[in-house]
Design a protein around this nucleic acid. Structure first.
Length: 374
DNA sequence: CATCCGTGGTA
DNA sequence: TTACCAAGGAT
């Protein structure tokens, strides 16, 4: 049987009918940290165990931004390329914005890339090139919300901060068998996480919670037999730990259809730059209309347009069937202009196209390998 | 509080 | 295969 962690809280005193708040024993953090000392994942942005070198706030920050809603496997190669190309926050602040956006292409959530450079410049211009070392000051930087500010404060600067991400939410709601459904449970989860966060090694504690959530306390089929906290876990005691966290129903994802145009001429293809705000904001793209709009988009030039395939793509809040139309002209009907440029087809992979358009471009390149009429 | 914002892996 | 979801933030 698990140790009984229930104690009365001030909140319960105010509303006796409510279920008692659960508090973990103080032994939880030492138990988890001991497990972490032997089982921490080796990740590119972590200092090796036993290495006394203080963490580089720039690398901690960069990794945390990249890891927002993004898996470790997806982030790793991007982190390697970014740190090789821009080794310091000063270097990143001086980066060409277009090059940075292109380097981010494929990772998704492109507002992160725009905020990344804005944050680097704020650190250089407003903080003398050094990241602020308090949670409050970090929270004021572009792209740093409650989670990231707490994570950087704890991991990079050793501050005690309550770090709550999806892993911590899962682990915590299971430890306490929290019955309140998300997202309404967030304030309570944070309060619960606060009670188990230690004063020392808060950064290691946060990373330990996330490693535990990633490798043992997983969304589906948690490996409770390997969990160092199993004896403290109320969800495990219920026999169905997967039932936590409790979640509300989601809306169905609508489907949209759209058109993109592959216009080839003189070994090049016409690319446009999307508006800074909104979907794929600031990224290069193939010409085409706004999907879901009533009117069909006009082709970028008069030509013999032919359908060359359809790209199926799934975004967060809708799925898309993108019909790709292609045409080739013997000469460019117009030169580069603001918001549009001719890009060599041979190096289209270096254009920094987001995944949707990279797939459309694969269809186009197969149709017009040299940009000449077939 | 709800909505918008990418992508690829997993069962 | 479909559905879910991952080191969230901005508005």
């Amino acid at each position: 049987m698990p140790v009984d962690m229930r104690v009365a809280s001030p909140e319960d005193a105010a509303s006796p009918s409510r279920a008692p708040l659960l508090l973990a024993p103080l032994q939880l953090a030492p138990l988890l940290l001991a497990w972490y000392d032997g089982h921490a994942r080796a990740l590119p942005w972590r200092t090796p165990p036993g290495d006394a070198t203080p963490p580089d706030p720039y690398r901690v920050w960069l990794s945390e931004i990249m890891l927002q809603q993004t898996t470790v496997a997806a982030v790793a190669p991007y982190f390697a390329r970014f740190t090789a190309r821009w080794p310091t926050v000063a270097a990143l602040a001086a980066a060409d914005e277009g090059e940075l956006m292109a380097a981010w292409a494929g990772l998704g959530y492109y507002a992160r890339a725009r905020n990344l450079i804005a944050c680097a410049r704020a650190v250089v211009d407003g903080h003398g090139g050094r990241f602020p070392d308090t949670e409050t000051a970090l929270r004021a930087l572009p792209g740093l919300g409650a989670y990231t500010a707490a994570a950087v404060a704890a991991i990079a600067f050793g501050r005690r901060a309550v770090v709550v991400d999806a892993n911590v939410e899962r682990v915590t709601t299971r430890l306490f068998a929290c019955p309140v459904p998300l997202p309404a449970a967030r304030p309570r989860i944070r309060a619960l996480a606060d009670t188990i966060t230690p004063g020392e090694r808060a950064g290691d504690f946060a990373q330990a919670m996330m490693d535990l959530g990633a490798s043992i306390c997983t969304t589906r089929k948690p490996r409770c037999l390997l969990c160092p906290l199993a004896t403290l876990c109320h969800a495990r005691a219920t026999g169905d730990p997967e039932a936590f966290p409790v979640k509300c129903m989601k809306k169905p994802r609508p489907h949209r259809r759209g058109i993109a145009y592959w216009l080839a001429a003189e070994d090049a293809v016409l690319l446009v730059r999307r508006p800074d705000k909104g979907l794929l904001g600031g990224m290069r793209a193939l010409p085409g209309g706004d999907w879901g709009a009533i009117a069909e988009p006009a082709p970028p030039a008069d030509a013999d347009w032919r359908p060359i395939g359809t790209v199926e793509h799934v975004f967060t809040h809708f799925s898309l069937s993108l019909d790709v139309m292609a045409a080739a002209l013997p000469m460019r009907p117009f030169a580069d202009r603001p918001g549009a440029q001719w890009w060599p087809i041979e190096t289209i992979d270096e254009a920094g196209l987001p995944t949707l358009y990279a797939r459309a471009a694969m269809l186009g390149r197969a149709t017009h390998p040299e940009g000449l009429p077939a």
